[in-house]
């Protein structure tokens, strides 16, 4: 299938893009197109205007300081995977990026596009929620900074207004002494996750985030409590029960999440685990 008709705009600057976004009806931002183009090809959406932001040089820049890294919106998954931009999370970002789709998809797909798309089985929503990243958003009406945890409202639903553009994604530095674990369970390489667990383990505290369980990534508060209260490893059944309470999932889904979380915990703690590497 071929897309329905639309008008195409290729602004050179953020200001120009914001102008177009403000004045055009039924306009959509085009980032890498790796989520939008399949949707357009299948005619599941038919916007009147596409505003392609990949020609805006300012959106390719990154800035790094002590607190973290701020990536321009059109930073691609590949740039993160290949270390062309700095990583404030000691390997977590390149690791996550490398698991997204296929190389050809990563060469075009962007970090901001992935967040704006808001699919909870995708990598960035969960990873960047766990890292407490934030997006910088601009419109003709002004600028704002939205934590990723507040940006994502549901499947394909975000807190962005129609005229707003994500210009940058700000990722704080992973705190000293924090070890991470990430496990993506998918039927095949390149597939979206069936379960996506991120664990951040620091002395006295373990934080767990789960993607692909609800319409947005969720923090597993109940599970964290159960873990905090237990000495030594807990049984998979117990973990599954806690995750069920956190996510409302049951049966096979719950089981899969439990295994993902357990493996992510083992990875973060540096315990050996079948089929996964250790990241410190």
């Amino acid at each position: 299938m071929k897309p329905a008709e639309f008008a195409y705009h290729r602004p050179d600057s953020v200001e120009e893009a914001l102008g177009l976004l403000g004045e055009l009806e039924e306009a959509k931002v085009l980032g890498g197109g790796q989520s939008l183009l399949p949707i357009l090809n299948m005619r599941l959406a038919a916007p009147a205007h596409l505003i392609d932001i990949t020609g805006i040089r300012a959106l390719r820049r990154f800035e790094e300081d002590d607190s973290g890294v701020r990536y321009g919106a059109v930073t691609t998954h590949m740039m993160i995977e290949d270390g062309l931009v700095p990583d404030p999370a000691r390997g977590l970002l390149p690791h996550a990026a490398a698991g997204i789709g296929y190389r050809a998809v990563r060469n075009r797909g962007t970090i901001a596009g992935s967040l704006a798309h808001s699919d909870s089985s995708a990598e960035w929503p969960t990873v960047l929620s766990a890292l407490d990243a934030a997006v910088h958003v601009r419109s003709n009406r002004g600028d704002r900074r939205i934590p990723v945890r507040e940006l994502l409202l549901g499947f394909f639903t975000t807190a962005l207004a129609e005229d707003e553009l994500i210009t940058a994604v700000e990722v704080p530095r992973l705190r000293e002494g924090t070890r991470w674990g990430m496990v993506k369970m998918a039927r095949k390489p390149g597939e979206f996750a069936e379960s996506l667990a991120i664990t951040l383990v620091r002395p006295g505290e373990t934080e767990i985030w789960l993607g692909a369980a609800r319409d947005v990534p969720v923090r597993l508060a109940e599970t964290e409590t159960v873990l905090a209260g237990s000495i030594g490893p807990i049984a998979l059944e117990q973990l599954a029960e806690a995750i069920g309470a956190d996510t409302g999932s049951s049966g096979y889904e719950r089981q899969r999440h439990a295994v993902a979380v357990r493996r992510a915990l083992e990875t973060a703690r540096g315990e050996t685990v079948r089929g996964a590497e250790v990241h410190v």
Binding site: M1, K2, P3, A4, E5, R43
Partner: peptide, 11 residues
């Protein structure tokens, strides 16, 4: 003349 236009008609 093109597939895209044929699909427009079908729609």
């Amino acid at each position: 003349p093109s597939r895209a236009e044929a699909e427009d008609l079908v729609a």
